[in-house]
Design a protein around this nucleic acid. Structure first.
Lengths: 230, 230
DNA sequence: GTCTATAATTGGATAGAC
DNA sequence: GTCTATCCAATTATAGAC
C-alpha cells in the first residue's frame, strides 16, 4: 500500500542524452545537454505527476528530480525550494482549468453551451487527470497557496458567467436555477471522473480511456443536467 | 500560507485534568486520568481533523498528540505507528460515508428516495466535512489503504443499489439513465459542498452553516437531478 | 549551469524509569 | 499506562569544485 512513491533508485539512467559512453569508473556523471526550457518543463511535469498523487509533503524533491531525470541539486538550482516548485505547478494549472468555463457566452444556445462544456471538461478529466487531482488536493486543504487568486480571479469569472446563466433563465431558455449552483454542479460532475477515477474504476470497471465509456459518460451527465432523471 | 499546521507549542495545557496545582518546577507532568476510551477517541478526532487538512505526510504525530492533549509517546502506545492511526481513522469513516446510500430501497418512490439522499448527504457535508475531505484525499491518491475494501464492499453496495435504480427505470418511474452514473452524480454533487468548501465560500460568499444557504443548496441540487435545467 | 559532498534539521519510533 | 530522554533515518538545502 504505497502512500509514498517507491524509493528512487538513486541512479538515473544516462539514456540517450549522454555525449559518449562513460567509462564505468568515471567519477563524474555526463553533463546534461538538454536546453534549459526543456528541463524546466520536464521538472514541472514530473512534479505535477508526483504532487498530484502523493501530495506536497508525500513527495521528495529527490523523487521529482529522478522522474525528470535531473539531479536533485540541479532541480534546486532551477527552483529555489520545494514550495516554489509546487506553486509554479499550481500556477500553470489554474488557466487550463478555467478555460472551459470562459467559453460560456450568452449568445449561445444554453443546451449547446452546457453540452459542450461537459464534453470539454470530461475530456480534460481523461487527458489531464493529474491536473484535476492536484487542483482538488489544493482545494481540500484550504487552497493556502491559491486563496488570493481564487478570491479574485475565480470569483470574477463565476460572477460573469452567472450573469450569462441568469439571462438564460430570465429568457425562459433554462428552468429556474441559481447560477452558482449550476456552475458547482458542472464542476463537480465532470471533475469527479478524474478525481475519483479509482472509485469509478472499482465500481464501473472501466475508464475514460475507453471511447465507449467516455461517450456513455458524456451522454449520462448531459442527460442528468439537461433533462433530469425524474 | 500554511501548508502545514502551525508548530505545536510543545507545552500542553494541563487543563482541568490535573489533580493538583503543579509546582512550577515539577519535572514531571501530572498523570492523565482520562479513561482510555476517551483518549482513543480524542486521538482519532484530532487525527481526522489534521489528516483531512494536511494529509498523512503533512501531519506529524506530535501535532496530533498536541491537539488530542496526550504525549507523543502515549499516542504511540495506543497506535503502534502513524500509518496504523491513519487506517483506523479511515476505517471509521467508510461506514458513516456509505450509510445514506444503504437507505435506497426499491419500494420507495424514486423522487422521494433521491431527495432524501441528497438532503442527508448535504447535511453530512455540513456536519462532518473533514470526513468527506479525508475520504476524497484518499481517493485522489489512489486509495492505497482502502483499495481492497473499495473493490469489495463499495462495489457490492453500488451493484445492489444499481439494481434498484434499474428497476425504477424499467418501471418508467425514472428517465433512462445508467445507474452507475446516477450514483456518481449523487456523490459528486453532494460531496462537492464539503470538499470544495473554500471554493464555494470564495464564489458564493456563504457556507452550509447558514440555514438559508443549506436549504437553497438542497433545493437546487434536487432540482438539477430530478428536473434538469433545460 | 551542473555536479559531488555535506551540513542542518525534522520527525518517527524506541528504551526504560515510574 | 504514562512519562522523559534519546536514537536514528530521511530530507531539505547549501557549499564549493568544475
Amino acid at each position: 500500500m504505497p502512500t509514498r512513491p517507491p524509493k528512487a533508485p538513486g541512479k538515473r539512467s544516462s539514456g540517450s542524452t549522454g555525449v559518449q559512453a562513460a567509462p564505468p569508473r568515471s567519477p563524474r556523471a555526463p553533463r546534461d545537454l538538454r536546453p534549459v526550457a526543456d528541463k524546466r518543463s520536464a521538472i514541472l511535469g514530473a512534479a505535477l505527476a508526483l504532487f498530484s498523487r502523493y501530495g506536497l509533503h508525500g513527495t521528495t524533491v529527490e523523487q521529482v528530480a529522478a522522474q525528470a531525470e535531473v539531479s536533485k541539486s540541479n532541480l534546486l538550482y532551477h527552483f529555489a525550494n520545494k514550495e516554489v516548485l509546487y506553486v509554479a505547478v499550481l500556477r500553470d494549472l489554474l488557466d487550463v482549468w478555467l478555460a472551459p468555463l470562459r467559453a460560456f457566452r450568452a449568445d449561445q444556445d444554453p443546451r449547446e453551451a452546457i453540452s459542450q462544456y461537459i464534453r470539454a471538461k470530461i475530456a480534460l478529466s481523461r487527458d489531464r487527470p493529474e491536473a484535476s487531482r492536484l487542483f482538488c488536493l489544493e482545494m481540500i486543504q484550504g487552497a493556502p497557496l491559491l486563496r488570493d487568486e481564487l478570491a479574485r480571479e475565480l470569483r470574477e469569472l463565476v460572477q460573469a458567467k452567472s450573469a450569462v446563466i441568469h439571462a438564460w433563465v430570465a429568457d425562459g431558455r433554462l428552468k429556474p436555477v441559481q447560477p452558482h449552483h449550476l456552475v458547482f454542479a458542472l464542476w463537480a460532475l465532470t471533475q469527479h471522473y478524474a478525481d475519483f477515477a479509482v472509485q469509478v474504476q472499482a465500481v464501473a470497471g472501466r475508464t475514460l480511456d475507453e471511447p465507449e465509456f467516455f461517450e456513455e459518460t458524456v451522454r449520462n451527465v448531459c442527460g442528468i443536467v439537461l433533462e433530469g432523471v425524474a
